[in-house]
Every structure is written in structure tokens, then in C-alpha cells.
């Protein structure tokens, strides 16, 4: 019965129309805000991804600097020609960070 009155009101009164309109607007706003919040969460996630990417980069850099200062024994030997002293090759990567390809390091023996 109320619905009928409402329908009647919508058809006859501009005041009644505003109520529905406000409700629709709020609904729209809420849905839009929720979507944006989702977007924000995504933005946060992207940002922390960028942050961790940078941290991995710094870790890779630090490992390489350490390797240059204190050579490791687990390096592949590259012989640039048979008589040459060995050139040591290592691919430095961070375990579990597949998205970050390893960095190649060459190091002369002496």
C-alpha cells in the first residue's frame, strides 16, 4: 500500500522524488567510494611492491659490492681465451624474488 502511495507521490510530488533521488545518490556514492577504497588498497599494494622492488635492488647492489671486496669461492670460471687468467662469473639473485632477474657479476682473478 505504501508503495502505491509512494508511486503516487513520485508521480505527483517533487518532494517525494527527492527522497528517492537522495537515496540513489548515496547508494551511488557509497558504491563508488567502496570501489575507490578498493583502488586505494590496490595502490597501497602497488606501492609496497615498488618499495620491496627497490629494497631487493639495494640488497643485490650490496651483495655485489661485498663480492667485489671479498670474492666468493662459488663462482663460475670464464676463460676468455685459453692462456688467460680466469674471469669469475656469478649471477647474484635474491631467493624467492623471481620477479627480479639476477645480476651478473664478472670479477678478474687478481
Amino acid at each position: 500500500m505504501g508503495t502505491n502511495r509512494l508511486t503516487q507521490l513520485r508521480e505527483t510530488s517533487p518532494n517525494g522524488f527527492s527522497l528517492v533521488e537522495v537515496m540513489v545518490s548515496f547508494l551511488f556514492l557509497t558504491v563508488a567510494s567502496l570501489a575507490l577504497l578498493q583502488g586505494f588498497e590496490l595502490a597501497f599494494r602497488h606501492y609496497s611492491l615498488a618499495q620491496s622492488h627497490w629494497k631487493v635492488t639495494v640488497e643485490l647492489w650490496n651483495r655485489i659490492e661485498q663480492l667485489r671486496a671479498n670474492p666468493s669461492t662459488q663462482e663460475e670460471v670464464l676463460q676468455i681465451f685459453p692462456a688467460a687468467r680466469p674471469l669469475y662469473r656469478t649471477v647474484v639473485s635474491i631467493p624467492g624474488r623471481a620477479e627480479h632477474s639476477g645480476w651478473e657479476v664478472l670479477r678478474a682473478e687478481k
Binding site: M23, F26, L29, T30, S33, L34, L36, L37, F40
Partner: peptide
């Protein structure tokens, strides 16, 4: 209710 919900979302935002 909608205002509260909306403003809490906006403030969170």
C-alpha cells in the same frame, strides 16, 4: 546511516 557510512569512507580515504 548513509552519511555516516559515506563520511567514514571519505575519512578513511
Amino acid at each position: 546511516i548513509l552519511f555516516l557510512a559515506f563520511f567514514s569512507i571519505v575519512s578513511q580515504f
